[in-house]
Structure formats: C-alpha cells, structure tokens
Nucleic acid binder design. Sequence first.
DNA 1: ATCCCGGGAG
DNA 2: CTCCCGGGAT
Length: 384
Amino acid sequence: MIPGWKDRDALRAALMSWFVASRRDLPWRSRESLYGIWVAEIMLQQTTVEAVVPFYQRFLARFPDVQTLARSSVDEVMALWSGLGYYRRAAMLHRAAGIIVAERGGRFPASSREWHQLPGVGDYASGAIASLGLGERVPAVDANARRVLLRWLCATGACAAAVGKARLKEWAEDIVDPDAPGDWNEAVMELGALVCRARHPKCADCPVSRWCRAAESADPATIPPLAAPPDRVRVTLAQLLITDGVKVLLMPPGATPAVPAPRGFAVAREDFSGLFRGMCGLPSTPWLHASTDQVLAPGEIWSDFLPLVHGILAPGHIDFAGSCRHAVTRFDLQIQVHRILVDSACLTRGRTWPPGWRVAGLSAPGVPISRLTTKVLGIARTEG
DNA sequence: ATCCCGGGAG
DNA sequence: CTCCCGGGAT
C-alpha cells in the first residue's frame, strides 16, 4: 500500500474520465496489432508524439507486418528512419524482427518478460507493449509517468530525489489499474504530456490535483528536480560535397576515410563512428576545437582524401559552399561545407569510387542519412 | 556512468 | 538563436 494513499479508486475514475475526453487520437492507439504497438513504442522512445506520427505511418505502409520487416534489408529500414534520430533503435527493431521470425516462428512474445528479452525493448517498452497489447497488469514508466507518479507522492524536490528506481517501480506496480492496465498507462503518460508537464505544469486544469502532493507545494515544476545537463562542447568540422548540382556522392555506413586534422587545429573527437551509426554520410574531417570564425582551407584538408576518388577531379576545383550548425548529444557542431562541382556523366560513371559508395539525389536520397547530412545537402541545393 | 539525436518552446 | 526534453545498451 502506498503511504498516504487516500482514495485510489476515486483517483483512477477521475483520471480515466479525463482521458476519455482529452485523449489524442493517434494512429497507433487503435491497438489493431501487437506489431503496430511495438513499432510505435520504439519510435516513441526519446521522441515526441508529433515527430513520430508521419514516420509511423510511412513505416507501417512499407513494413505492414513483422515478416515484411524481417526480410527487408537493414539499409532500407534505416532509410525510412532517416531524420527520426537514435538510429540504433531502427537497427535493433530490425534485429528483433529477425529473431521473432527465425526463432519464434513469427509469433510475438506473450508477456512483458519475454518482450524484454528482445533487442531495443527495455523496462518501459516491455511494459507498454504488454499492457497495451496483451492486457498484462504491468506499469509503463516513461519520463512522463515517472514525473506524474513522483508529483502525486512527493511535496518536495528532496522527496522525489530520494525515490530510487526500485521504489518507483513498486509504486507504479501498485497503482496500475488491474481492470484496464493499458488504458491506465496511456492515461498517466497522456496526463504527463498534456497537463503535468515538466516545466509548466497546468495544475489548475488537472483532473487529479486533489490527490497530488506536489500540487500543494509552492512550485510543482521543481518536483522532481532536474538533473544538471552536461557541458556543451563546441566543435568545428568540414564536409565535402561531390555533386553535379542534382546528385551527390555518399559514403556507406561505417566508411571513415582518413582525413587528417589541418595544421594548427586540435582534434576534439577522433572517432565519431558511433554517431549516426548505420547512416550514409559525406567525407568529413575529424571534429576540431576551433573558434567559430576560423576557416578550414579546402585545398589542405582534402589533399590526402582526393586520391580515393581519383579520376573525378583535381584539388583546385574545391570551393566553399556554406556552413550550418547541428547539435548532437552534448556537441554543438559548426559544419563548413566544401564542394566539388562535377558534370553528371562523371558522377554516374562509378568505377573509381571505393566499394559501397553511391550516388543519391540531393533532395530525396532514399538512402539512410541523418538530419546533419540533410542540412548539408540543403546547402548544396540553395547554392545551386 | 556515458553514449546515442531530434523536435518544440521560449 | 538558446534551452529543454527523453529509454536502452554498454
């Protein structure tokens, strides 16, 4: 029993009637298939509902079931994930589909415990999938639910900070509505997203504020206290567009041809192969410590790289096309974009390129690229 | 404990 | 612009 818990049934009734009236109608909420619920929960990790909707619809249209997903190439799955971020999720989803088809005869796990065994499915996702898709009485504690629970139970930030993961889990398990665990979990998360928000909680609009300890406090927004964010690191780098103005040369995932740091620049991060794993990209310098106005000289940077694409161009034809910014994890990247303009025939005749390199459209590549690469390609388009 | 991305709010 | 937000693997 939760300490101080007065009237659990009344709280449940109040929250559920609010949810029936306020619930957003989202594509995965029809609960038509375990498959759809699974895909949605993976996409919703670290990602807002608004961002997920169009990706979810495209994904389900292209990969309508787990068999289709399993026999598709990981490359195509990554391509459909382009722009959504945290690309490891897509690789793990594809890997899990392979396991479900090859090792389980295409049958989905029948419990949260079994779901938890699959790649990419942790405490949150296994609880969400099992409660929504199987009716299992388990909590699904994402950041929204965690905040809601802690506010219900704690009148101070210190109280919330003292609640460990195990304790929170106990509370969450205790409060899940046994008759409708999926609806309950959805309702708690929806309340966190729409009303019990991190920065600007709308306690005046909250259907359950009368059972909430944080609502009685001076500043509910400070419960739970926010963790100190890591210091941001400013980084400069250059990337190289080899393009005819319509198409561009892209490197396959994992390709990191040696491009030395220019003299006078210190390397901020030698190996960034973990970033954007599985995505195609442009040739890049290492990440460099530099003041924002320092210019990287194209001729010097790419002289060792160009022999890899010999037969295309000589170093003299490289120009500066523009620059853009991209924030990723704790890094703030300033990307100087260099360009080699070639004629189309030269680009489509590909024998001289390293294996796996490919030509893609500047606008809709149809290959897996991150948002960073999208921005860089955008510079090529606007500069004509 | 640290590493992975992107969107939205202000 | 800047700041804030968010699960799972290792």
